[in-house]
Nucleic acid binder design. Structure first.
Length: 199
DNA sequence: GACTGATGCGGGTTAGAG
DNA sequence: CTCTAACCCGCATCAGTC
């Protein structure tokens, strides 16, 4: 019986040491855990001070994806990729859609595209758009770090997002195509089309 | 093929801490 | 002065759209 108890203690210790190895590292460590028994599922919305170890086969991890709008930041370290959060684009009128939802647009990653985006109007009420910047990391944007090491991709997030979630990349793209379809069938564009056809 | 935007890289600056 | 972190800028590449 004692043997069985010992075994379970051993198992617990194994688990504990494995857990330690899985969580005690820091992205800046010279050596990262080598023996990772289980990799994490890709986290679309990593928040607060979390760490994940993904498989190097994971396509989302390979592309350093996140549903938060993250822009590349130079940390002068080619081994570690650093990204900082751009926040979320909200309606300046704080309007709501018919089903009671708020407008939380995905900020464009490219600086130029973002400036252009802020000149556009709210897709719901035509009001001005406002960029709500992220200040969840001591007043600075939340930062994400990615590091490829052997068969694993190590991910670390610093800071807790202090703003709502923007649309995901897929949602933003879908909205763009819907908008395109709408403008294509709007009375003005149909009229223009007819004029062009007559010409 | 031009254009736009996402993504990554790296040179450089600035501010605060030690 | 050095180190670190945040940020700006330009450049390159790639994918999707027109």
């Amino acid at each position: 019986m004692l043997k069985g108890a010992d075994a379970s203690v051993m198992e617990q210790e194994d688990f504990a040491s494995q857990h330690r190895e899985m969580t005690s590292w820091d992205i800046n460590d010279i050596k990262l855990p080598q023996h990772v028994s289980q990799t994490d599922w890709f986290q679309e919305w990593p928040d607060s001070y979390v760490k994940h170890i993904y498989s190097s086969e994971d396509k989302n991890a390979q592309r350093h994806h996140s549903s938060w709008a993250m822009r590349n930041t130079n940390n002068h370290n080619s081994r570690i990729l650093k990204k900082s959060c751009l926040g979320v684009v909200v309606c300046g009128n704080d309007c709501s859609t018919l089903d009671g939802r708020k407008i939380y647009l995905r900020p464009a990653i490219c600086d130029k595209a973002r400036q252009k985006q802020q000149r556009k109007c709210c897709p719901n009420c035509n009001g001005p758009l406002r960029l709500l910047s992220c200040r969840g990391h001591g007043g600075y944007p939340v930062t994400n770090f990615w590091r490829h090491e052997g068969q694993f991709i190590f991910f670390q997030s610093k800071g807790a997002h202090d703003h709502p979630r923007p649309e995901t990349k897929l949602e933003a793209e879908a909205r763009r195509s819907i908008q395109k379809a709408k403008t294509a069938f709007s009375p003005t564009s149909l009229r223009l089309k007819r004029i062009q056809e007559i010409e």
